[in-house]
Amino acid sequence: MAPNSHPLRRGWTTGSCATAAAKAAWLILNGHSAPAYVNITLPAGQQVGFAIARTGGAPDAPFAEVIKDAGDDPDITHGALIRATIKTLPTGCGIVFQAGPGVGTVTRPGLPIAVGEPAINPTPRAMIRAALTEANAGICPDAEVIISVENGEKLAERTLNSRLGILGGLSILGTTGIVVPFSCSAWIESIHRGVDVARAEDLTHLAGSTGNVSEKGVQKFYNLPDSALIEMGDFAGGLLKYLRKHPVPRLTISGGIAKMTKLGQGFMDLHSKRGPADMRQLAELVLAYNGNPDLADTIARSPTVAEAFLHASQQGFPLGYLIARSALQTVKDVLHPAPIQADVLVFDRAGNLVGQA
């Protein structure tokens, strides 16, 4: 950490915010004054407090709202208003969850929530049940819990939800209740759910891509359906390690030149913040291939992979194929011993295939 930097601040999942809002709404429904602050218990047992931003609604259907604080994580839901509305149900109904405006509905199998259910994941549901039970003298109440997210449908356009079959808004997520800065846990969870959906549809060939250009390229190359496309972004490890435990017959990894170079060098997180590609290691691929010391030296001294690739292209050297081959070795190493047939495609920024292994 740099001398003048500060520790990154943790935040709260949408599930934690929904739980706090639900508890506040339940208290109002049962005659308490609108609370300014409530405590909830996270899955690991920690007690944490949440400020209640606003309350309102009818006496028999009050709502409470919490502003999502993602800490220093680059989370699209940071600052979103999470609302819970509570209504009583007849005895014996238990707690029933509904999707309000901005919360999606599951439309395809393979997710941890059944088709037709609101996209409120199992851990947030359990947290809400526990919070309402605690607030109801230890007895699980009979209540309808409606979770809404202001502007959630628009925010969902920037997620992978539609590809997963979650339509109409965001998912209420979280397994720990805490957002660890720059863990991008929501993205990794979306990767895992994408694999689950594809497996539920019995797809035999998936493609994990680092970005839009490489995703379009691999889809066109193999004529794959949208549900076979896993937008892994920088999180190659998040995809490969999950597939090792939940295999499919075939996997293609598709990406740009720089990110596939890093994958070939063993990086599981391909973001530039996690470190640059090793140019000397890239130059060693050239020496191992044909022993061209001049080109190898030029590549070793190049400041970026893009410039190194340009030098190689000018000499007609197949650097993209060497990058693909080294990336494929990493893919195989991580997937082992899962019986998955794997290949790697490398695309330039214009979408041209420049490497394949």
Results as ranks from 00 to 15, higher is better:
Met1Glu: 11
Pro3Tyr: 15
Asn4Cys: 08
His6Thr: 14
Arg9Cys: 03
Arg10Gly: 07
Ala20Glu: 01
Lys23Leu: 14
Ala24Thr: 02
Asn30Leu: 06
His32Glu: 13
Ala36Pro: 13
Ile40Thr: 12
Leu42Phe: 05
Gly45Glu: 05
Gln46Ser: 13
Val48Leu: 04
Ile52Met: 04
Arg54Gln: 13
Thr55Gly: 03
Asp60Cys: 07
Ala61Phe: 05
Pro62Ser: 09
Asp72Ala: 10
Ala84Val: 08
Ala84Met: 07
Ile86Gly: 11
Thr88Trp: 02
Cys93Glu: 13
Gly94Asn: 13
Gln98Gly: 07
Gln98Met: 06
Pro109Tyr: 00
Gly116Asn: 06
Pro118Ile: 06
Ala119Arg: 03
Ala119Ile: 00
Pro122Asn: 03
Pro124Met: 01
Arg125Gly: 12
Glu134Arg: 04
Asn136Ala: 14
Ala143Trp: 10
Glu144Asp: 05
Glu150Phe: 07
Asn151Phe: 09
Gly152His: 10
Glu153Trp: 01
Lys154Cys: 11
Leu155Lys: 05
Arg158Ser: 12
Leu160Phe: 15
Asn161Leu: 03
Arg163Trp: 09
Leu173Lys: 14
Val179Tyr: 03
Val180Asn: 13
Phe182Pro: 06
Ile188Tyr: 02
Ile188Cys: 11
Ile188Pro: 00
Glu189Lys: 03
Ser190Ile: 06
Arg193Cys: 06
Gly194Leu: 08
Asp202Leu: 14
Ala207Met: 08
Gly208Phe: 08
Gly211Trp: 00
Val213Ile: 15
Phe221Gln: 12
Tyr222Lys: 09
Asn223Val: 04
Pro225Glu: 01
Pro225Gln: 01
Pro225Leu: 00
Asp226Leu: 12
Ile230Pro: 13
Met232Pro: 05
Met232Tyr: 05
Gly233Glu: 06
Asp234Met: 06
Asp234Cys: 03
Ala236Asn: 04
Leu240Phe: 07
Lys245Asn: 12
Lys245Gln: 14
Lys245His: 07
Val248Tyr: 00
Ile253Gln: 03
Gly255Trp: 09
Lys259Gln: 12
Gln265Phe: 07
Met268Gly: 12
Ser272Ile: 15
Arg274Asp: 10
Pro276Arg: 14
Asp278Tyr: 09
Met279Asp: 05
Glu284Val: 08
Leu285His: 15
Gly291Val: 02
Asp294Gly: 03
Arg301Trp: 01
Pro303Ala: 14
Ala306Glu: 15
Ala308Ser: 14
Ser313Gln: 15
Gln314Trp: 08
Gln315Tyr: 09
Gly316Pro: 13
Tyr321Pro: 03
Leu322Asn: 11
Ala324Ser: 08
Arg325Cys: 01
Val334Trp: 06
Ala338Cys: 05
Pro339Asn: 03
Ile340Tyr: 01
Gln341Phe: 05
Phe347Asn: 11
Asp348Cys: 03
Gly351Trp: 07
Gly351Pro: 08
Ala357Met: 02
